[in-house]
Write a protein that binds this DNA or RNA. Structure first.
Lengths: 241, 241
DNA sequence: ACCTGAACACCGTTCAAGT
DNA sequence: ACCTGAACACCGTTCAAGT
């Protein structure tokens, strides 16, 4: 509704693309450019065609369908963003903050892909490395294996899901977003004190859905909860022996 | 790729829809039926037309565009699912479990709408009531207003985001989903013990992304964290006086 | 073998024409 | 005023034809 499409109409005779000049790597590079420039919704076979100066349908020789292309792109972006950046600091809390921040920032950089990145398993080196890194931090926090595997998943799901939700907010039309944000600073203050006593009392303190403090506070709450679990496990061990 | 479309081709002369028989309510009821039967991706103007036995474009007289229709539908579904069901038990932990479960189940019942339900503000009675209910539970947990408003948001974001992510898993093609699930039970067990010692050691305990235990465990971890905050605030109050 | 062009079955949306 | 029909500008995907 807002963005303008770049016209290409003045085509001429269309020069034929040189043989073997197309490959998965070339196509992915073009896809990355488009994704960075126009987001996921701009990434169509048509746009890829003009970006590559090739016919849209030639891509089907190199990728089975759009889903395969998108998954491959997701992994490439992930490796680029934080492929080798996760190095342990020795402090488990700091390490979990590190990986949470990396994922959060990555999702906000590519908001159009966030939902797919959050929900799908790519089973590739970057993903394996993330799990290993988080498991190690959980172990150093003092969790036993059962709790560690559980917490890795719960914590990971939280970080990915909330990051994806924030990203999807960034993708909304400006109109819808400002209306949604306005609601929290205006409409909630006008509710009746009898029917909604708690809202009325705290309406000047209510936070907006995308407030930047929310993510880091959520992480801290999880870290506290993990520490509590470790203490309980320790106490149970002491009791048993 | 999997679902079959119901043919309607044998049209005949097409009977004209009686005058004034269309309205927002009638259209929303049809949309709800389609959503429940075929999910969000089945909800097209074409499908609405055949369901209503009317021309697709007649809907534009009653809704500005598809977005308006979808938002209205979301609110109707929400009111139906848990409009009046949130009654306090007196126990703040139980109350927060109650609202978390209600939202979780609602999102899984309408997986196609989950992402929109999670991210957007409808500023309508059901939403106001949810916030009031959660704020009251936080207050009874012993949180002061600053912490209560923060925790309502962090907890709410967690519940909605994770529920939406689980729902989006349910929406995947069967092929993609089984491949993704297989990864966690097969590929992760084959990683080398030198490079990934923690994964190897715990590979038989790793949980799949959509494991049903994960949601309730995440809620419990938050409740623990809230209780911890309340204790800290209490201690700080005692120190001050 | 690789790239192209035309075609197909869908979308949401607009607008003049019927009743 | 309300509903219809044809048309438009997009999608992803298939397949026979060019080179």
């Amino acid at each position: 509704m807002a963005a303008a499409k770049s016209a290409q109409s003045e085509a001429g005779p269309r020069k034929r693309r040189p043989r073997d000049s197309l490959s998965r790597a070339v196509i992915l590079a073009a896809a990355e450019q488009i994704a960075l420039r126009d987001g996921l919704e701009g990434l169509t076979f048509g746009a890829l065609g003009t970006e590559l100066q090739a016919h849209s349908t030639s891509i089907y020789r190199h990728f089975r369908d759009k889903d395969e292309l998108v998954l491959e792109l997701i992994d490439a972006l992930r490796a680029k963003s934080y492929g080798d950046q996760l190095v342990s600091t020795g402090d488990w809390r700091e390490d979990l903050r590190l990986i949470a921040t990396a994922i959060h920032e990555h999702y906000l950089r590519y908001p159009g892909f966030a939902q797919q990145m959050a929900a799908r398993t790519t089973r590739r080196p970057t993903e394996f490395h993330n799990v290993e890194f988080a498991l190690d931090a959980m172990r150093r926090a003092g969790l036993e294996d059962e709790d560690a595997t559980l917490c890795v998943r719960v914590f990971g799901n939280h970080v990915r899901a909330v990051s994806a939700m924030e990203a999807s907010l960034r993708m909304l039309d400006d109109e819808a977003r400002t209306m949604d944000e306005l609601a929290w600073t205006v409409e909630y203050r006008q509710l009746s004190a009898e029917e909604f006593p708690n809202i009325s009392r705290t309406s000047d303190k209510l936070l907006t859905v995308g407030d930047p403090r929310l993510f880091s506070e959520g992480v801290e709450m999880f870290l506290d909860s993990i520490e509590l679990r470790a203490k309980r496990a320790k106490a149970a061990r002491r009791k048993r022996s």
